[in-house]
Simulated scan of single mutants.
Amino acid sequence: MASAKLDQIDRKLLEILQSNGKITNAQLSKEIGLSPAPTLERVKKLENAGIIESYHAQLDRQKVGLGVMTFVQVTLSGHKKSITETFVKVIERVPEIIECHHVTGSCDFLLKVIAKDISSYQTLIMETINEIEVVASTQTMVILSTFKSSKVLPVP
């Protein structure tokens, strides 16, 4: 898919909105040097084009009681489309799996999983992920600390 043609103002809008999704249109227009109406029009254009996908609050996972975060490498029993679809259909229904990436290398999928504690995580792995009929093996990496976790994309 071809990337959208963005001018300097669009790039600045995206940079500001990624850093502060709650900014008012008045403040946004002041920061980019346009009046409010054209600013709002540009934001709507970026939303309608699917460049801006959503706005949401970022939560402190530990303050809401989610103390364990892991990466899980998953190897499937084969590479047929039906096997992949079976796996994806199940993991889409598991709220603790917050990211799922189909990857190359020594495994087939890389999952980012969040849980209340190690016991909850163990239950999730043993009773949900490892019970998916097409899962051949899993390997867990517990995240001890995170030094960078940016949600801001560097718009070229």
Rank of each mutant, 00 (worst) to 15 (best):
M1V: 06
A2E: 08
K5D: 08
L6C: 04
D7E: 01
Q8E: 14
Q8T: 07
I9A: 02
D10S: 00
R11C: 02
R11E: 07
L14W: 06
E15F: 09
I16L: 04
L17F: 01
L17H: 01
L17I: 10
S19V: 00
G21R: 03
G21M: 05
K22Q: 08
I23H: 04
I23K: 08
T24I: 02
T24D: 05
L28G: 03
S29M: 03
E31L: 14
E31G: 00
E31C: 00
S35A: 09
P36E: 09
P36R: 13
A37C: 00
P38D: 03
L40M: 11
R42M: 07
R42Q: 10
V43M: 06
K45D: 12
L46K: 06
E47T: 11
I51F: 08
E53P: 01
E53M: 12
Y55R: 13
Q58E: 10
L59P: 00
L59R: 09
R61N: 05
Q62M: 06
Q62F: 08
Q62P: 00
V64H: 02
V64M: 09
G65V: 06
L66W: 04
G67K: 04
V68P: 02
M69W: 00
T70S: 11
F71L: 12
F71I: 04
V72P: 03
T75P: 03
T75F: 03
T75M: 08
T75R: 13
L76W: 07
G78V: 02
G78I: 03
G78T: 02
H79S: 10
K80A: 10
K81V: 11
E85G: 02
T86D: 14
F87S: 07
K89R: 15
K89W: 01
E92Y: 07
E96F: 03
E96N: 15
E96L: 03
E99Y: 09
C100P: 03
H101P: 00
H101E: 06
H102M: 14
V103P: 06
C107L: 00
D108Y: 04
D108F: 07
K112P: 03
V113C: 12
D117F: 10
D117C: 09
S119R: 14
S119A: 13
Q122L: 11
Q122F: 04
Q122P: 01
L124I: 05
T128H: 07
I129R: 08
I129F: 04
I129S: 05
N130F: 02
E131F: 02
I132C: 08
V134T: 15
V134P: 09
V135T: 10
V135G: 11
S137I: 02
V142F: 15
I143D: 02
I143F: 03
I143S: 08
I143L: 12
S145A: 14
S145E: 14
K148V: 14
S149N: 15
S149L: 13
S150D: 12
K151A: 15
L153E: 13
L153K: 15
P154N: 14
P154M: 09
P154E: 15
P154R: 11
P156M: 08
P156F: 11
